[in-house]
Design a protein around this nucleic acid. Sequence first.
DNA 1: GTGACGCCATTGTGATCACAAATTTCCCGC
DNA 2: GCGGGAAATTTGTGATCACAATGGCGTCAC
Lengths: 238, 238
Amino acid sequence: MKRQSSSAPTGDPGVPISLPPDLGLTAHEGVFRQLRDRILFGGIRPGTAVTLRGLAEDLGVSPMPVREAVRRLIAAGALELQDNRRVVVPPMSRERFDEILFARRALEPELAARALAHLTAAHIDAIEDIDDAIDRAMKGGDTESYMRGNFQFHFAIYERAGADTLLALVESIWLQFGPFMRMAYGRIGTSVLEDHHEFAIAAMRARNVADLKAAIDADIGQGMGFIGDAVLSRKHPI
Amino acid sequence: MKRQSSSAPTGDPGVPISLPPDLGLTAHEGVFRQLRDRILFGGIRPGTAVTLRGLAEDLGVSPMPVREAVRRLIAAGALELQDNRRVVVPPMSRERFDEILFARRALEPELAARALAHLTAAHIDAIEDIDDAIDRAMKGGDTESYMRGNFQFHFAIYERAGADTLLALVESIWLQFGPFMRMAYGRIGTSVLEDHHEFAIAAMRARNVADLKAAIDADIGQGMGFIGDAVLSRKHPI
DNA sequence: GTGACGCCATTGTGATCACAAATTTCCCGC
DNA sequence: GCGGGAAATTTGTGATCACAATGGCGTCAC
């Protein structure tokens, strides 16, 4: 599926700014991934409006592919279309936070369990490398790298389950609490975190399903507890 | 949010066919609901291609709002965009079916449990009315009404939980197995069904959370078992 | 100084046009 | 009769234009 001829009918040189040049995917798919990453890793603050034309200019495309990407993200719950037709990252509430926590604990340990049989030693080594990078980012206070690493750690496991339908549900959930991870880490810092990734890696090496599910569950509880404390304690929950 | 002026620039009378005249929602929202219902209640056979222009003509709008509605449904997993750019209802596989079953059992009993506290006697009466309608449809062999009733029964309960995030996940899941319900009932008929709705109603009246969760879980197991037997036993799974 | 009213820019929505890829159709050659 | 390739149609994708609604901003009255 090649990209269109990028004719750039206007007189300007037509240089896309932050979108990778081509890569053989459609414009709207590229915009979607770019936008998804921004949301997932805290690039968009909750409450601030996102405009189609603004994003289109940012990414060097027409508003059209942006519309489709935004529509997808709205369907995933990552963005919200307000009554005034403003598009924003929806605010977090105690109720919504609780639902997200429940869904994560209901789905992610199962996904990890299903992945275990398909994980080779090489896979586990790669996952441990990701965890090492997370540790370095944590020590260095690099919030962005920490969040990217944490996402990679979890999904490197989940992807091996070969359960795309469940994976899509979990991705949708991550998109909904992603923006608030950034807010939490920004407020408190990453140095105080102690995740349960080591336990998960040990359980994977030991091929122990119960321990792996417990480690993932504990990691979710710890991480979400941290976010919940930081975000929901505010007077104006935003 | 009013609809646009519907100028109908072509010479034809411009009569929308199956879309309700206005109702104060955007065209793309109307198309979305129409299309969602078709998918949910078996109006679109898996594997058959859905074209943007074709649907637009059917619904009396331009291809534009159809694009957005289709994009939303693709994001929800209800439709699939193949490599050849064809849009279809994705086929069912044993693996995907198993994931859907797991997700339903993980989320729906919880949703029912959370709804219980908010259910008034009047709500339960209304739900029982829906179940009566289901029984009539079942006796009469009216597959369409049965499916609509079954959907209404479950979501009349789930909606009262006030858990929109979880509800959206469950809606996405229903969209994915809906088309195959029709296939199953079409092959075997609705008369042999015996759901667990009565037990669920009794548990709601008794305010018994555990029984309600058990009834919903049993209903899911029975219904999905029926669909699985009918759909996955085919030589060509489609 | 302060409030309200009106004007203008911005924004999402929908329609139409253009284009390339894919599919179908049709015709010719064997 | 039957396969194969070229032409024509169909289809998704992207861009541009038009429009109504919303928000922002300045101005004027008091």
